[in-house]
């Protein structure tokens, strides 16, 4: 079967591997190599045909500086731990060479990064910082609690992993009615299994559960989607609770993900979202997975029946989940 697949691929119109290039001004490229290894060992990136490359460039090419901003009184403040790169040079170089995605690792001991169309991190940050920033590049939102000033800036924008829904104050007569009413506002709705409730309590209120920030999604370096933790559902977050007025935010996972803590994994919901986004960008899946999971209809990995059958509201955290 594998031979047949390979034959078909050769016969099919030319396809290409997605090209991601890490530009760094660190001569020994140590941090860039850590970043590359992190991508290669993180699901779902490890399931796609991605050609990674590291290029050493000059500090001038990267054109990075500490973050500067004007305060309301007109004075300028410089925050050295925040990093920003004016990356037009890198963008031009990347486009000229047919690179799909440029990333920047800056040789400075600050501990931060930035998530724009070209994700940036400093060598003083852990490599997972780049994963976090790249997920911003793909459009994913932060899942941590914004300060009031930050909430004012960001809490008018939803994303593939975060939505704003004001629950019906009267409650819901059934889970099905809640689904009918809100499904079109949940970008990950297709990942929520029929047996996973999006309401709870008596009378029924909206939400599979609250996000539990003390439990972190387990980083997943396997070749299969995460099976640890709670099922994908509609979990109430706290990202915009300091907005004025406060706004209810909802996420696909109950555990805190890498969009809040860098030692957390993507979480099952974000994994599926990222895979869907990469596919929609034309990134091809690897043909033969090592240790492929058992697949059910439509090629979706089959999960053990005992996991499928666990009622979501009562599902227990994984023993591997930290904190």
């Amino acid at each position: 079967m594998k031979k047949l697949l390979s034959l078909l691929l050769i016969m099919s119109p030319s396809v290409y591997a997605y090209k991601m290039t890490i530009y760094t001004d660190q001569p020994e490229q140590t941090k860039a190599r850590e970043v590359l290894s992190t991508f290669k060992n993180t699901y779902p990136f490890n399931q796609f045909e991605i050609d990674f490359e590291i290029k050493t460039v000059s500090a001038g090419d990267l054109n990075c500086e500490p973050y500067r901003f004007k305060k309301p009184d007109g004075t300028e403040e410089v925050i050295n731990r925040n990093l920003t790169c004016h990356s037009s040079n890198i963008a031009r170089e990347a486009a000229k060479n047919g690179i799909d995605q440029a990333l920047i690792v800056k040789n400075v001991e600050a501990y931060g990064g930035s998530g724009g169309s070209i994700p940036v991190m400093s060598i003083g940050s852990p490599p997972e910082m780049m994963l976090h920033e790249y997920l911003h590049t793909l459009g994913l939102c932060d899942e941590y609690e914004y300060k009031a000033s930050e909430a004012g800036e960001y809490c008018d924008m939803s994303g593939p992993n975060m939505t704003f829904i004001e629950p019906d104050p009267e409650g819901y007569p059934s889970d099905a009615k809640a689904r009918n009413k809100h499904s079109d506002k949940i970008p990950w709705y297709s990942f929520i299994k029929p047996q996973t409730l999006i309401t709870r309590g008596t009378p029924l209120t909206l939400g599979t559960d609250l996000v539990n920030n003390s439990v972190h999604a387990t980083p997943n370096s396997t070749n299969a989607p995460s099976v640890m933790g709670a099922a994908i559902g509609l979990y109430e977050g706290k990202t915009c609770k300091n907005a004025n007025p406060p706004k209810k935010t909802w996420q696909p996972g109950r555990e805190a993900s890498i969009m809040e803590f860098l030692d957390a994994g993507l979480g099952a919901g974000n994994e599926q979202l990222v895979a869907k986004i990469l596919e929609s960008r034309g990134v091809r899946r690897k043909l033969a997975e090592e240790n492929p999971p058992e697949r059910g209809i439509f090629g979706i990995p089959r999960r053990p029946k005992e996991i499928l059958d666990v009622p979501v509201n009562n599902s227990s955290e994984s023993s591997n989940s930290s904190r």
Partner: peptide
């Protein structure tokens, strides 16, 4: 992306 998020 329509802006850059600068984070630390």
């Amino acid at each position: 992306n329509t802006f850059t998020m600068v984070e630390s």
